[in-house]
Amino acid sequence: MKIAIINYGMCNLSSVRRAFEDLGAKVFVADHPTSLYEANRIILPGVGAFSEGMTRLVEDGWVDALHDLVILQQKPLLGICLGMQMLATSGEEGGVTKGLNLIPGKVMRLDQLGCDLRIPHVGWNEVHYLSQDDLFTFIPDSSDFYFVHSYAFVPDSQENIIATATYGTNITAVVRNNHIFGCQFHPEKSSKAGRQLLKNFMNFMPC
């Protein structure tokens, strides 16, 4: 089992790397798309704006490698925060931008989704499961995870939403399309519940 963390220059990867090391995983930071081919699991982390993130993924050749590995070779992928949002078809942050389109849907600002509370949504919030999923094994429903974001993912199909959080409105907390997962919160910063979720992703076996 080898886990690759995509380094496209958008965030601190050390906490994600550290979280997997704590779990005893073999983990490496992939600085170039070619190194992704060594991995059995791929993490797309991210902090920052959607348009900037996609520009880097496109310009540095990550998009083709992800298509190859995730679509053709069916390697499990977990997107975190911006990395989860970029799984969508398009995003509106920093101008309407095309996403990876691995889970059809769009990313919109929280206030456009009916949230009238303080934005960004920062802090620990309960994550409610819509279905029992491999990713949630051992973690009680409604556990608290750490969120920090101003935009949220709205998948075209409700079936891709496997957990939500409430912040003025219902927010997509976790998405899944087969072997492709994404979480809006930061498991690497969510203490033990987050560690367990990452462990579950390591243990996930695609059929």
């Binding site: 620990w124 009680p140 556990s143 033990k192 367990q196 462990k199």
Partner: peptide
Amino acid sequence: VRRNYIGNIQ
């Protein structure tokens, strides 16, 4: 307030 997760990681 946040409820801390107290289970052991399995």
